[in-house]
Amino acid sequence: MGLWPVLIQLLQDQDHQVRTGVAWICGTALQNNPDAQKAFLDHQGLPNLITMLQASEPQERAKAQYAISGLLKHCAVAVDQFKQADGFQVMATMLKTHTEDATTLRKVIFLYNTLMVENATLATELIKDGLVALLHTTIAHYTKDHADEDMVEKALRTLLTAKQQQPDLVTLDTPVIQRAHDTFGADHLNLDKAEWATLLE
């Protein structure tokens, strides 16, 4: 795609609406497209997306997250570069500081889950970096303070993946999980009996 240099340059445009629109274009092009993922990385597009993840505008963050998801899925090289650029720390900060932006945060948690399913080594690193505690905090917040069944479901699913990938490294906060179970109902959170047993052991 000969337009990559132009698009990546536009990710630094002074107008946040331009950056937002271009991030959406990039994200659409990157999905399930190894050639596009490689070209995007070769043209140094990832740092621009990480910068956009830290923007003040929710839509800009959302479209940057969309593009990052398209880039990282099924692309180990992109995951490594994202990790080296402290991208996972940026996503963790988003979960801590942008609790009002539930739409984007659901996508952040979904991406964590997808990447851990694909890569057990990455799961270990994320767990050691504090992801489990962050998921517990997210579940507690969206159960008690701002009820959001979909958010809690995604966070529980991601917590389950972490436990399944590295059972010896993950200590579960059973009261937090039980509260979510009781608040929303087991059937509404799309976990089967065996999965609940793992989370509430």
Rank of each mutant, 00 (worst) to 15 (best):
T121S: 06
M1E: 15
A67S: 10
H188I: 04
D15E: 03
L49Q: 05
F88M: 02
Q17Y: 10
A92K: 09
R179A: 15
Q44S: 11
G70Q: 14
L126E: 03
A78E: 07
L200H: 07
D129F: 09
G87L: 07
G45H: 02
M91T: 03
A55Q: 02
T124K: 15
D182G: 05
Q178K: 12
A39M: 10
Q9M: 11
L126R: 03
E195M: 12
K83E: 13
H188K: 05
K154Y: 01
T51P: 00
D42W: 01
L49M: 05
E57G: 07
I25F: 04
Q31S: 12
G2R: 06
T138W: 06
M91C: 01
A23N: 08
A29S: 04
E201N: 15
Y112F: 15
T198S: 11
V79Q: 04
K154A: 00
A133E: 15
H16I: 00
Q84Y: 12
Q84K: 14
L10S: 11
L131G: 12
Q37Y: 10
D182E: 14
L199T: 06
E149Y: 08
A55S: 15
K38E: 08
L53V: 08
C26N: 09
V132H: 07
R179C: 07
A64T: 00
Y112G: 04
V108H: 12
Q17M: 04
T158C: 15
R157Q: 10
Q165D: 13
A23G: 01
E149A: 13
L191D: 02
G70C: 11
Q166T: 07
L72F: 00
P58L: 01
T138M: 11
M52P: 08
V90P: 05
K63Q: 10
M116T: 13
I50F: 09
L71Q: 13
L115Y: 12
I8Q: 02
L3S: 00
K144P: 06
E118T: 07
